[in-house]
């Protein structure tokens, strides 16, 4: 028995299930790829430019913040790249380069690092920056104005503004199949229903997102839209239309289940998801925005800490 042998000493447990943060972030990025790819096919080089600019800016911003806060560099873990990508997925392909950069900086710096970095953000960083841009430069965030110069093979008016302004008949041309296949205008990575659903299924199967949140959100959208539609079928489009347009799917799988800003207990997750769906539909149908998903995300982020107080009683708790 050699006395020179050195053993590694650490605290139990000595096994780990090998999950890690980079794996999750890159998993999210992979899951977003089909939707992003279709956006690039549809809108060409400008879309690719926006995506690369956003991802690059996000990584750069993360690196600067790491330097500034003197923390270990985290740019390779994929979280910054993911945030940049998610931001790009929500905006029109024609967004000017400086708006892309400002938006990405807002996402990473204000949305994430001001609150203490990954895990500490009370709101989804991309929802924060998108709301700031919508308030500051509404023109760039308007899909109809932004995409006016595109020759597209489908109706190039943003479906949610059509339904909002003109009612159900105006969107009759959008069949669910069209919407699933991305035959609609919108953010670069927000329109390809099938791609987003596939990505979402992958994320839920891998448990990178909490399925309770995504599914209860979709149920919330469906039920609320159904009630509106039944009350006034001509004025309010049906539930399927709302499930497949705007930010519904990207919100369900990529924004709402953000770890830090959503609850972890079963009942709170269901309330959170369904509540967001309900609010999003209220805003779409009677609020002043065309789409209500981002605002609904932020509002539910706000009540998340309260919701997570509804928790099961720990073993042996005397109360």
């Amino acid at each position: 028995m050699s006395s020179k042998k050195m053993f590694i000493v650490s605290h139990a447990p000595f096994w780990h299930n090998r999950s890690n943060i980079p794996e999750r972030c890159y998993g999210m990025i992979w899951a977003a790829m089909p939707a992003v790819a279709l956006g690039i096919v549809q809108y060409g080089l400008p879309a690719a430019g926006v995506v690369f600019l956003a991802v690059g800016t996000a990584i750069l911003a993360e690196w600067l913040m790491n330097r500034l806060t003197k923390r270990t560099a985290t740019i390779t873990d994929g979280n910054a790249a993911l945030l940049g990508l998610l931001f790009a997925m929500l905006i029109p392909a024609t967004t000017p380069w400086w708006v892309v950069m400002v938006g990405t900086l807002l996402t990473v710096v204000i949305g994430l690092h001001v609150f203490g970095g990954m895990g500490a953000n009370p709101f989804h960083p991309v929802a924060v920056s998108m709301m700031m841009l919508t308030v500051s430069w509404p023109a760039f965030m308007d899909f109809n104005a932004a995409l006016v110069n595109y020759e597209l093979s489908f109706n190039a008016v943003f479906p949610l503004s059509l339904s909002k302004n003109l009612g159900t008949a105006a969107v009759a041309g959008f069949t669910p199949l069209d919407l699933l296949l991305g035959q609609q205008t919108g953010g670069i990575g927000s329109t390809f229903g099938l791609g987003l659903i596939g990505g979402g299924l992958y994320l839920m199967a891998k448990r990178y997102i909490r399925w309770e949140i995504s599914l209860s959100f979709l149920a919330g959208i469906y039920m609320t839209a159904l009630v509106f539609h039944m009350a006034a079928p001509d004025q309010y489009a049906g539930p399927l239309f709302h499930l497949l347009t705007g930010y519904t799917l990207v919100g369900a799988f990529f924004l709402l289940p953000d770890n830090a800003s959503s609850p972890v207990n079963p009942i709170p997750m269901l309330i959170y998801g369904a509540g967001a769906g309900f609010l999003a539909m209220l805003i779409r149908n009677i609020g002043s925005y065309h789409d209500g998903v981002l605002l609904a995300v932020l509002l539910m982020n706000l009540v998340n800490p309260l919701l997570d107080k509804i928790r099961p009683k720990a073993l042996g708790k005397v109360a």
Binding site: M1, S3, K4, K5, M6, F7, I8, V9, S10, H11, A12, P13, F14, W15
Partner: peptide, 19 residues
């Protein structure tokens, strides 16, 4: 060298520094 030597099991044991 650099293995881990544990008194007890994988979840709750105690790591030793020598044999």
């Amino acid at each position: 060298d650099r293995d881990r030597l544990i008194l007890g099991g994988p979840m709750t044991g105690t790591a030793l520094y020598d044999e």
